[in-house]
Design a protein around this nucleic acid. Structure first.
Lengths: 201, 201, 201, 201
DNA sequence: GATGAATGAGACTTCATTCAT
DNA sequence: CATGAATGAAGTCTCATTCAT
């Protein structure tokens, strides 16, 4: 009994280890330039064994997206501990600033993955990437709503879109200051919001 | 003499045709999923012949970026005919709206290319993609400057970043209305700007 | 003691279950396209466990041939209950007719197995398949002999060869009527035989 | 002009060389045990180049079947030079005898191919194998018809089926004398035919 | 310059077989 | 004995790049 549970747990852990390795390597190299051998190596697993856990490369890509979703959930769970919605959103922006060096080198993990997957004939993986972004949209909208701001969905779209945009530019220009500058603006915007509906780009 | 000129012209035309074909196919399929044969076919050129115009696939990718730069120049040249800088910027936003269906399907041509190229060990092609975006940044900043708005570079960063962000989300969610909604906000923002420095996301 | 016998019996049953599953799946898919996992699944046995009963895939293939031999023995044992040798042979032909739909889809189990195994460098398994066919030849010759027909081996060869031929054609053309037509001819031939030595194709 | 024709001819020749090599090696080893490298080696062509002529292994298998069809056509064309239909059929049987050693080792090329292909989910290749056998059936029926024998299709079925059957047994038992014995019977049968409708197995 | 053909490295994937518990 | 997991050797197929005419 314990044995069987242990084994199941170990298998789940290995699956997780592979998914995490995939998330890392895919962020680093992109989907098409990453080989299964790369992921296996990163996970410390022989190449042939990967197929015991994931039947195709595509499944592994989707598992990596699952990792990103899980990390997003951990992040928002942490932010949820802050009492004020506005502070949660500002803290979110701060995490973007904290990641700016990585972003300059590799872009937003989910965003770049979505960009690459979006052009495949099979839209399954792309949809998974979209779902992660929508999850962030939903959480963000919930904060705006709790805060009492009008049109919470619209504000959420603006904030998440701003993140994608500044990540893309930070990456394309290899310039972390893009993130710093835009984040500063976003923080000011968030501070200004309750004052009224405001007009915002 | 004329013959030689003709030939040189013909060669240049073929180069251009290949670059344009590359721009189209790379936007459609992404860099890594596109084969040289794909591009050759799209251009109506025999596969083996491509190498007389571009020594490597990488050169062809850079040529496609050159195409994007040229089209950007044509676009801004057209906008420059409008007398008021604010109207030029608003017209720019309108072109984004006009492209929204394509964006939903394939993303921003330059942005998705930059995302994919940004992860290569060799940064040459990535830099070229960054240069195209910077060109747009520069033109945009020039408009804000001509208009007399404070911190033109900062405002340009916000506008171009917004474009990248809304394109990424439009693509990831396959939802053209993302573009419509964000563009509406940007237009209002541009209209509100001269009224004062404003606080903007 | 009883325990040990039980265990031995259980083991034998599992061996048999695996062999029977192998016979089924190999008939369905052929030797090379069948994986050990396929057979294990069909038998309801975990994959890794197969190797406690059969050291190699080849042994499993031979066990499947053993199954076919056993079924042939059961068939001839049943036919032996008929009093007249000629009626036994005619009943044999009738079983071929009864199997015609399966034959159209998959061919003769032993025949197609023999065809596939016959090209292996290691002739062991092929010999086993040949032995099953020879067993049918022997039984058939015994019937002709008991019947008093001249050259019983020759007549047996003709009958068994006819079965292989019509099975092959039925399968290749996916047409069960091939079996019906040829079987009709064989039955007439068997009926005509005692009249004299006859000339037969 | 001549150049282009030469090249096209050369390409056709290489295709043919590959198909012929495939026919040989597939007969020798069977479909599933034959690798593309095997065929490439037999044809004296580097492995990667095979895909220039045949996009998949399956296409190569079908090309091998095309070879068998062509050889069958050459054979029947040769037989057609004989004036009497009965002599043509007897000569056909003689070719089977002449091939008996190869048959003992490898079986009938088309028959064993059909047996192996018949179990694939995709029935395309199997249908091609069936078509070759039907071609022989048609030619044989035409001879019986020209000869004036009743039920030419039925007689053709019997003769071709006999060939498949004796080839299968010759192969399974590794005994060329099976072919000799059955062929003798068939020749006697053909000789006896005009005497009357006859009863034949 | 132009073109079909050639090449070879490497990717993904499958599976018989073996291990560790 | 049982069983999930591990392993590594192939095998099919793709493609950027180069050749020979």
């Amino acid at each position: 009994m314990t044995n069987s549970v242990d084994r199941r747990t170990q298998a789940a852990q290995k699956r997780r280890r592979l998914a995490a390795a995939a998330a890392r390597v895919l962020h680093e190299q992109g989907v098409e330039r990453t080989t299964l051998a790369d992921i296996a190596r990163e996970a410390g697993v022989p190449a042939g064994n990967v197929y015991y856990y994931f039947k195709t490369k595509d499944e592994l890509v989707r598992a990596a997206l699952g990792e990103h979703r899980d990390r997003l959930d951990e992040l928002t769970a942490g932010l949820d501990r802050l009492p004020a919605p506005r502070d949660r959103l500002k803290a979110l922006v701060e995490t973007w600033v904290a990641e700016r060096e990585t972003t300059a080198r590799l872009g937003c993990p989910t965003g770049t993955l979505a960009a690459e997957l979006g052009k495949r004939a099979d839209g399954t993986a792309a949809a998974e990437a979209g779902a992660v972004l929508r999850r962030l949209l939903d959480w963000t909208a919930a904060q705006f709503r709790a805060w009492g701001v009008s049109d919470p969905e619209g504000h959420a779209l603006t904030l998440v879109s701003a993140h994608q945009g500044m990540s893309a530019l930070t990456h394309a220009l290899r310039d972390p200051s893009v993130t710093t500058r835009e984040a500063t603006r976003l923080l000011r915007w968030l501070d200004s919001l309750p004052a009224g509906p405001g007009v915002s780009p």
